[in-house]
Design a protein around this nucleic acid. Structure first.
Lengths: 144, 144
DNA sequence: CTGGATCCCAATAGATACTG
DNA sequence: CAGTATCTATTGGGATCCAG
């Protein structure tokens, strides 16, 4: 967090290897980033306040930090609402939309192995079937 | 790490919400766990030494900690090699095998968006096509 | 108001050295 | 070989402050 090192401020947290999985994890391999992307991509949230209000209770400094990193990584863009200049709006890019399959696989695995999920098969069947629908819906919602 | 608290030794790091994505991330939402699973599931590694030798250079205490957590979560089992009692062998369970699609989506996204990956489309095409092959191969290798 | 930035301090992750 | 111990660095929570 509170970072004095200009190297890091610039964004590049330097990668650990040439592996594409490692590349992905260097961007969203932590406990919060994918939850933020879930809210943006699957729950249609777009504002800081909405994201901060999620069930898991992310701290505002962490949310702020992750949004910045995602912007630097090109997964989302930050801009003002043209209708209400006070509002900041976060919009996922194509690069961000590409993460929907990752989120759905994560959700599918969780639903199957989480004893708290009621009907895991239904969940998986629904989201597997509607994958393209989810992507289309999010793309529409996140138009600029 | 070095943990005196019996609550935590028991394993349950307590979940943050009822969301299946959050459930998944509570298990492997960190910078290392999915790299270990990559090595087990996609690279056929089975021993501590092999896992410790990966390109990313994981510290042995972290590796040890993550393997313990994954065992508690039921993603893998730890046992001695019957042929060589000195060897410890890590074997993925069905629950663990279920993570292969997650890893492949992660790899696909990384390959497409990583400027260092040469032929991202080929990568995706190959792994998308061979998904079942990968699962079958890993299941065979991780038989007990 | 919303969207953060900052500070403090606790908790966790991690690198390195060392051991049964 | 397969870890543990120790010590340091980083992250995270919570409150508070502040600019537009």
């Amino acid at each position: 967090m509170s970072d004095k090192d200009p190297e890091k401020q610039a964004g590049q947290s330097q990668r650990r290897s040439g592996c594409p999985i490692s590349f992905s994890l260097d961007i969203f391999g932590d406990r919060w980033t994918l939850l933020i992307l879930r809210d943006l991509l699957l729950h249609g949230k777009r504002q800081f306040r909405e994201l901060a209000g999620s069930e898991e209770g992310i701290a505002t400094n962490i949310l702020s930090d992750r949004l910045k990193r995602l912007e630097v990584s090109g997964v989302l863009v930050r801009e003002r609402d043209p209708n209400d200049r006070r509002q900041v709006i976060y919009t996922t890019t194509e690069k961000g939309l590409g993460l929907i399959p990752v989120l759905l696989e994560l959700a599918a695995w969780g639903a199957i192995h989480d004893p708290q999920t009621d009907a895991p098969e239904d969940f998986v069947a629904t989201y597997a079937k509607d994958r393209e629908t989810v992507i289309a819906r999010t793309r529409k919602k996140h138009q600029r």
